[in-house]
């Protein structure tokens, strides 16, 4: 396993959010994290990044124990994070946002990585534009680009299609497919669009109330399961 969580629980203050999570991502695979709003999907990704107040259990990346590692140290194990709501730095230029990602990269040369420019030509043509001026879809491209600048082993994508126009959703889905299937970048994808999850995913975990309640290959994700755990 490239990334493994063993009996992980996590907390914000004294409030426990995740309960006894066992979870693994194989090299080159895409793991979909599914469930309704508020079941703990975002907290699961934030736990992997070390962005919760407290975590118990163990976490490894490429067999290295990172349980006690700070967020900035975890990022250097090759975790490329695309947070919910994008969280690009609005006062930064496009170039500076992408360069931010390179601080987690080993062998940093201070240049915008080629892959970021090739994948998103609009960003390449607007490197000096203020990121806050970009549209939602362009900001999502920038958030993905910033995570790619880490030269990641694993991309952690927290609802990358949330609030994006339908035509851009397909475009982003296609980009993620290419990154996963052609470049072999592993992914943890938290997603509400079940079609995107089915298109991209190899495995899935279904969450409810901070626990994993179903898990398996994406082919095992039945409509009945989706209705039971994802329909409001």
């Amino acid at each position: 396993m490239l990334l493994e969580l063993d009996n992980v629980s996590s907390f914000y203050g004294r409030t426990q959010i995740l309960r006894n999570i066992d979870f693994g991502v194989k090299k080159g695979s895409c793991m979909c994290v599914l469930g309704r709003n508020g079941v703990g999907k975002t907290t699961l990704l934030r736990t992997v990044m070390g962005l919760v107040d407290k975590m118990t259990g163990t976490m490894t990346v490429s067999k290295a124990d990172v349980t006690r590692a700070r967020t900035d140290e975890r990022a250097k194990y090759g975790l490329g994070y695309v947070p919910q709501g994008r969280q690009i730095l609005g006062n930064f230029t496009v170039r500076e946002n992408i360069l931010l990602g390179t601080f987690a990269k080993t062998g940093r040369d201070g240049k915008v990585p080629d892959i970021c420019l090739e994948l998103f030509p609009y960003l390449a043509e607007n490197l000096n534009r203020r990121a806050g001026e970009l549209s939602g879809g362009q900001q999502q491209q920038l958030a993905i680009s910033r995570a790619l600048a880490v030269d990641p082993q694993i991309l952690l994508l927290d609802e990358p299609t949330e609030g994006i126009q339908p035509n851009i959703v397909a475009e982003i889905g296609e980009t993620l497919r290419m990154l996963n299937k052609k470049l072999g970048i592993s992914m943890i994808l938290s997603e509400q669009h079940i079609k995107v999850a089915r298109d991209l995913g190899d495995q899935f975990v279904m969450m409810d109330n901070g626990r994993i309640v179903e898990a398996g290959g994406i082919a095992d994700l039945s409509d009945e399961m989706v209705d039971r755990h994802m329909t409001v």
Binding site: L51, T71, D72, A75, Y81, P83, Q87, L89, L100
Partner: peptide
Amino acid sequence: TDFGIKIRAVTQNREIAASFGINS
């Protein structure tokens, strides 16, 4: 400078800065 990018990133969003390898 790189240090400037780090300072401004931490000022704007400490969590995101940390998520990209910056020790705030």
